[in-house]
Write a protein that binds this DNA or RNA. Sequence first.
DNA 1: AAGTGGTCTAGACCACCGG
DNA 2: CGGTGGTCTAGACCACTTC
Lengths: 253, 253
Amino acid sequence: MGTQQLESVPEPKYWHLKTVLSEALDSEFSVGEILPNERDLAARFGVARATLRQALEQLELEGRLQRRRGVGTTVAPPRVGVAVGGEQHAWPGTIGDAWQAVDCTEAAPPAAVADILETLHGEQVHVVRRSRMSHGQPVAAELLYIPADSVPALPAIDAPSGAARARAVLRELQRLELEGQDRSVELGSARADDAKELDRLPGAPVLVVTTRFFAEGRTAAVSLATYRADTCRLTFGDSGGVEIHHGPERRAS
Amino acid sequence: MGTQQLESVPEPKYWHLKTVLSEALDSEFSVGEILPNERDLAARFGVARATLRQALEQLELEGRLQRRRGVGTTVAPPRVGVAVGGEQHAWPGTIGDAWQAVDCTEAAPPAAVADILETLHGEQVHVVRRSRMSHGQPVAAELLYIPADSVPALPAIDAPSGAARARAVLRELQRLELEGQDRSVELGSARADDAKELDRLPGAPVLVVTTRFFAEGRTAAVSLATYRADTCRLTFGDSGGVEIHHGPERRAS
DNA sequence: AAGTGGTCTAGACCACCGG
DNA sequence: CGGTGGTCTAGACCACTTC
């Protein structure tokens, strides 16, 4: 420790803290274990609580920790692989998909979605809400935007909302021939309602998967699915749910 | 403003701030424009600078803003769609891929990668570094881990590192028959070296794309590609680079 | 040198959860 | 109720860019 490098590019404290904590997590804690509270931890490392929190935030972002207000900070299990289905080209709601219809309303989509659907801004479309569970925990919330044109034969008589209505809309949508689809993934922050459904605070980081469904030569529906970024790893391609071990394994050897 | 709702669930200040700023961004600013500095903005909204920064951080995370130390905060352009190629099943380095080889070393991969490759922890493999540009800006940095087994005929005589060596390794890899591949996307934070290459600070949010390449009945190579989460939207599927307009359009109507 | 965003502090109060 | 994490403040200093 004597006369080493003079820290020509001094590492921020929170960054160094994160490294130290990360190593401690690997070697001295096991999944589910609760950490000391933030005030104690900060005191132990001789930093302000805000600085410690900056480190914890990053570790939570990376899926290493889970923090719950009023409860404490625990060591998170490895991220769960969630199959997003790279290529199977199927309408939402076909049997075997992982989603559960929640309800259905009619509303004007956000401008970005209206652009994709090529509807007029302000024009109402069917909005189907679905949710997705994994290992007993909610991992994703979805809004499916379906223009009235795409489900022309939909009976108007049924209940105007509710899960039954949602399923009716999806059934009707499946009558179209799916010509292709298209996905993109980006980082976002959870809107208030999504956050509630995902059991997180508003603004929590989420992975937003935008899927466009093509039929009859146009975009017949758009899905905006928001996945919890802290707990999910989205998997694509051949072997949907294949196990990938992330994080150091705890092996005795 | 008289006797309205008593805010039974008071919205955090930074959240409200974010909304206000977001709307201002849509209506009163155009791409590239610079915002007032943080101290002025905080004063204008009557909050502490830390609170304002919390709002700015979220907007930056969502790709709405770009902040550069010593320079200022500017309105970010819409995210660029980056094709990640859902299904074309090709080895890295085949002509037409968007990457540029940087150099090649030999090193022991991180434990998580060693597990995927089924090599012993600590065993050295070829590590090819590549980078990816889009619109003149670096958008992604990649580390390709290739066990020596996968490139048995690689001449040892060449330069032990450098871009030429990297290309030689990739050329050798392409002699294997690619049997399949496998992708996953998750949120991470940039390591120091990636951050530097991506022109961001360490810890910046990134989308980590893990690709496994299968050949000869095993995992012949693993790629860890980290994309700037603030500027990139990863696109998969049929129509790789198709335009998706995100964010409100500025239309006069 | 001046101005920007990035880090850090030492406090305070609040919202939520559990016993 | 006590303890947890979440929000907020008013300052300070630092690293970086630009002029």
